[in-house]
């Protein structure tokens, strides 16, 4: 269970939102500048809210009243960035292995092998390439593999498909959904594409100007999707 309640003030703009989310695929939907990325950054620990409380499966990550702020590096939250953020000076293999502590590289302590993840995402043949030698879709898969390798308890995706062409986007949408089902950890994805939202969401959080809106989209209603509260 992900519990989020955050309040953060920017010059001329304020994010004030709270929601709970159990499992599946949560889509944060809304126009640019509605505070979606801020929410992701606060959950991951890359940004701190001014006040509020964030916890995942009973583990407290942030609480302004209790003075708790767990650093991003020990939250075990995977993050796929909008522009992939692959390390350009490392091969695909080294990128993917970056999050695995040396003591675990011998295969102990981790359930999944690197090769399995690379195979699932169909990028095992790219291991020795550098990110400058990859197409957009391949970069996206590598970024996903890298985030999943650390066996996160939650995966955050910031507009992961926005830089891809139509066909790639469609394929990856399907795979994201399958991946979520296979890993069975909550995925929280930011998008401003309504199509993506309708394809992927189990639950939807509609953001506008930093606030939660309770508007139910017709397509969502017909599929019986829930809004996160």
């Amino acid at each position: 269970m992900l519990k989020v309640s955050i309040n953060k003030v920017f010059p001329g703009f304020r994010v004030d939102i709270s929601f709970e989310f159990e499992r599946g695929f949560l889509v944060l939907f809304g126009p640019s500048g509605s505070g979606k990325s801020t929410v992701l950054n606060c959950i991951s620990g890359l940004q701190q809210p001014d006040t509020g409380c964030i916890s995942l499966n009973g583990k407290l990550f942030y609480s302004s009243s209790e003075g708790v702020a767990i650093p991003a590096r020990i939250r075990r939250i995977g993050y796929v960035f909008q522009d992939y953020a692959l390390f350009p000076h490392m091969t695909v293999k080294n990128n993917v292995m970056y999050g695995i502590p040396d003591r675990c590289k011998k295969g102990k302590g981790y359930r999944v092998g690197a090769l399995d993840v690379l195979k699932t995402l169909k990028i095992d043949h790219l291991q020795d390439r550098y990110s400058g030698q990859l197409s957009g879709g391949e970069k996206q898969r590598v970024a996903l593999a890298r985030a999943l390798m650390v066996e996160p308890d939650l995966l955050l995706l910031d507009e992961p498909l926005s830089a891809l062409d139509h066909i790639n986007r469609k394929n990856l949408q399907m795979e994201l959904k399958q991946l979520q089902r296979a890993w069975d950890i909550p995925f929280v994805m930011v998008t401003h594409s309504r199509r993506e939202m309708e394809m992927l969401a189990d639950e939807i959080l509609f953001l506008e100007q930093g606030k939660k809106r309770t508007y139910v989209f017709p397509a969502v209603r017909s599929r019986g999707l829930n809004l996160a509260y």
Binding site: G45, L46, I74
Partner: peptide, 27 residues
Amino acid sequence: VDVTLEQAARTLGAREMRIFLTVTLPL
């Protein structure tokens, strides 16, 4: 050096010194 790369390393569990030596400095 793109700050996002350092942030990505942070979410992958790296300490600040490791981030500096393996990401920031090489780039």
